[in-house]
């Protein structure tokens, strides 16, 4: 039902696969709409407890499809506000873990997309490049927000100013990648990781996401107060009860995400 992406749900995991391999999965207007729609669907569905965003073919995502913009006068600001920013906000507002499975190059806004996800699993063959500067632009789609928060301001400035290629290994070293996966077994390793997340208390994971992203913008007092709210909410979930019960009964808990 989508043209530029594939969407499937299996065993609690929704996978959004960017699917324009001949264009290195570069963004088009259609793709943005479809990604947002798929994110909303996955966010709402109680069958989904973990999301994966990945790409087909050799690339994860090469950023904006520049051929899509040739010869057109672009209002850059509006372009971002209409297309990219709602997609980034949708990832943030999805209160479930979102994994970027970076199968190949993630360049420009493609890198920003990966940064906006909660966890980055990176193929040993993949690499990142903050390519904006190479065409005289600045990181967008949250690039200026997430990058310094993930790798620290010093490294972030260097990567954004030079646009240099970041190998999987280097990405792991600086905390940009959570895990390096083998290229042959990439899909299986990603699925295994996602399956683990999909069995955890989803409501609480959503609250962790909410509180931590908020926390990077709040002071200690505000964060402590916010944690108290979240603990009130988490404390009333079925998964909390199950967790305590399982602990007392010395068995493994079976979480339902509720």
């Amino acid at each position: 039902m989508y043209e530029t992406i594939l969407y499937d749900v299996m065993e609690g995991i929704a996978t959004i696969t960017l699917n324009r391999p001949e264009k290195f999965n570069a963004f088009t207007e259609k793709m943005h709409k479809e990604i947002i729609d798929a994110l909303k669907q996955a966010g709402k569905s109680s069958d989904v407890r973990c999301l994966i965003i990945t790409g087909t073919g050799k690339a994860f995502n090469a950023g904006q499809d520049l051929s899509d913009m040739q010869g057109v006068e672009v209002d850059f600001g509006e372009f971002l506000r209409k297309r990219y920013n709602p997609m980034i906000m949708q990832i943030r507002n999805t209160e479930k873990p979102v994994i970027a499975a970076v199968n190949g190059v993630a360049a420009g806004a493609g890198m920003s997309l990966a940064l906006a996800c909660d966890i980055r699993l990176v193929s040993e063959k993949a690499f990142f490049t903050n390519a904006f500067i190479n065409i005289g632009l600045v990181p967008d789609s949250g690039g200026c927000y997430f990058l310094p928060r993930i790798v620290g301001i010093g490294k972030a400035l260097e990567l954004a100013m030079t646009g240099e290629k970041i190998s999987a290994e280097e990405a792991y070293r600086i905390g940009l990648a959570n895990k390096i996966c083998s290229a042959e077994n990439f899909e299986a390793e990603v699925k295994e990781y996602a399956a683990r997340l999909a069995k955890l208390p989803t409501k609480s994971i959503g609250l962790i996401k909410r509180a931590m992203y908020k926390g990077v913008e709040m002071n200690l007092e505000e964060t402590l107060e916010y944690e108290a709210y979240c603990q009130d909410i988490a404390g009333s979930t079925a998964d909390h009860k199950e967790g305590v019960q399982a602990f007392l009964e010395k068995r493994s808990p079976v979480f339902t995400g509720k």
Binding site: L207, R210, Y226, Y229, C230, D232, I233
Partner: peptide
């Protein structure tokens, strides 16, 4: 401003 689960409470 509080989390949506908590506004009434």
């Amino acid at each position: 401003v509080v989390p949506v689960e908590m506004y009434f409470h």
